[in-house]
Amino acid sequence: MRPDLAEGSEVGWLVDTAIDIVTIGIIVVGVLSFIIFIYALIRYRRTRQPFALREAPVWLRRIVYLDIAVLLFDLTLLSFNLYAWHEIMIDADDQYLLRKAQEEGAGFVRVQVVGRQFFWAFIYPGADQTFGTTDDYTTGNIMIVPENSYVVVDLTAKDVLHSFFIPEFRVKYDAIPGQRTRVWFKTTEPGTYEIACAELCGDKHYDMRAVLRVVSQEEWEAWVARRSNGVPGIVSGTLHAFGGGEHRQKSFSSSLSHSGSVSVQELSAN
């Protein structure tokens, strides 16, 4: 039922494995519990057992030890979760990811994401690789990242709480006004994915949809070059000009590839 995991997503693999372990565990225990429960109801119904036993039979009293088993079971299920959490949330600071990217020969991209009512803005650092300079550029409701790269996303929100959710990468974290939070994921192949808002943010909450485009290395470089050569950056204060969420755009057809790059206008149309 889960949407297919984005190819090669490390975070996604960790989260999926954690989900699978816990889900299989609770299904096994749940089914066993129901079998015992229904057996007990049938076995000890009034017509078969007209008088109740005052004391529990000895073998039943031993079932109390089951609670220790419950604790062990819980902690077993939790152990992979703790490992995965450590990998995703604690170990993976920027230094670690950068080093990993260099070792693997993969790219490393940083994007700032600002959630505001019913609109996601994606800010790129520009040629100087530093945020807050004049060559920063911003896209609205479309996030473009290169293939085979580690992507670090700095999250914040302008107005209310939002939550940055890419189902196919199993990435989710709240965007909080006045606070910076962070998620990361790894891309492999080019592809198109959906970004959703997972925290109630107002009446158009369900329509706060953005698109994640993972593009090939050449497309990415062409796009960066074009953005760096004179197309002025958009300061985030004027983002409302995009009018996010007004129209539903479900089509992914305005592809980057037909021109090799996209203009601000094309991006805003998405």
Partner: peptide, 11 residues
């Protein structure tokens, strides 16, 4: 559950 098991259950 143990309270139920061993009882004489009226439905």
């Amino acid at each position: 559950g143990i309270t139920l098991a061993g009882g004489s259950i009226r439905f």
